[in-house]
Amino acid sequence: MTSASAPDEALVLAAIEQVWGSMLYASAEPWPADRPAEFESGLQAQIELRGEWNGRLVLTCDSEVATQIAGAMLGVGPDEGLEQPDVHDAVGEVLNVVGGSVKGALPGTSALGLPGVSEVTAVPSRGESFVVSWGDAPVYVQIVPDAA
């Protein structure tokens, strides 16, 4: 592994901004470090990158944010009702497209995994994440290298 091949915050943020804008018709802004970013339950999507850098990207958001993201992708209003599997699917697919963009920007990356989505009851550590905005809500993003 070389540090040059590792995805950094700026690269992943640029990918998220592109996906938010083109797929979700929303803007993503860095979340102020001194602003609270808590929620009690939500969804966490993960996708693996393999190559010169090995690890995974992790995206964690509030359940309501996940539903809003799925609605934005499908063009479905908040009152139209979305099945939970479609919400999981949508959040995973958002991270899949972010992962594809990151992979394309890292020449030493040879493979992108399939996204996995699970429910979580705690937010990640702020120290191990960066946080971007979905409207007025936080979305946690982690770049997690494999354990040595």
Binding site: M23, A70, M73, L74, P85, D86, D89, A90, G92, E93, N96, L114
Partner: peptide, 8 residues
């Protein structure tokens, strides 16, 4: 494999 993406 994503039903949502097939819809999109």
């Amino acid at each position: 494999d994503s039903r949502v993406m097939r819809q999109i």
